[in-house]
């Protein structure tokens, strides 16, 4: 079975700073994985490297067996911030862009998602609240039938009702075989959702464990585990 994501010895520098060091990571199809770490730890960079947005890395990144940035992108649905669109663009125009640009875009899934997330796509992009904008980004991202979904901090700065709806739509619409990586530094709301947890600290992946393993071996919740990793309560040799 091909891994959904297979990263070997990934190193990435920019502006003479080391951002990721020796990252090696394998994720299986069908898993929901929490990518946790402080701001600036390298979560976003790792996602952007997987999606082929960050350049000049050393090492290999394979998604669904594809190693070049262009072919990887066909299998990756990344929650992008919609900066390529103009504030006056209607949401339905953005949908048209996606439908035309991505062969795996499902119009039906899109319709189901915006209905469930209560988004009126006759609105203009500039009029959306932060919560609605984030929900719309999730709707677009999940409307693609991709092998890998990368959600970069989908819950930051949005109200709890929107957050619940987003979580619910992930459960409803993620295909069984698709892998989903959710980055966050606030864990408690998504803890029950995660199959696995990957923690980035000091420019590298310091641990990658199954959620059940964390709960059973350490007797800790995901959030408590994450905090103790960061505070150094759990030493490296315990992983």
């Amino acid at each position: 079975m091909t891994e959904a994501i297979d990263i070997t010895n990934l190193n990435y520098r920019r502006n003479t700073k080391q951002i990721l060091t020796n990252v090696t990571l394998q994720l299986n199809p069908g898993k929901i994985v929490g990518l946790l770490g402080e701001n600036g730890a390298g979560k976003t960079t790792l996602m952007r490297l997987i999606a082929g947005l960050a350049k000049g890395e050393k090492g290999t990144i394979a998604v669904h067996g594809q190693t070049t940035a262009a072919t990887r992108r066909a299998f990756v649905s990344f929650s992008e911030a919609l900066q390529g669109f103009r504030p006056g663009d209607k949401l339905s125009q953005i949908r048209d862009f996606y439908a035309l640009a991505y062969p795996d875009f499902s119009a039906k899934k899109y319709l189901d998602l915006i209905t469930f997330l209560q988004i009126d796509d006759d609105q203009k992009l500039a009029t959306l609240s932060k919560g609605t904008r984030e929900k719309f980004i999730i709707a677009l991202t999940l409307s693609r039938e991709a092998a890998v979904y990368l959600l970069d901090e989908p819950f930051s700065g949005i109200d709890s009702m929107s957050r619940k709806r987003i979580i619910s739509s992930i459960i409803r619409w993620k295909q069984d075989s698709a892998t989903m990586v959710i980055s966050d530094h606030y864990v408690s709301e998504i803890a029950a959702l995660l199959d696995e947890v990957v923690i980035i600290k000091d420019h590298t992946i310091c641990t990658h464990k199954r959620s059940d393993q964390i709960r059973r071996e350490f007797g800790l919740g995901i959030e408590a585990f994450y905090e103790s990793v960061y505070e150094g309560d759990i030493s490296d040799d315990q992983f």
Partner: peptide, 16 residues
Amino acid sequence: EQVVISDTYRLLPTSD
């Protein structure tokens, strides 16, 4: 210039 450095376009599954 905006197109070539925006995520929206750079994410498209196609060659540079």
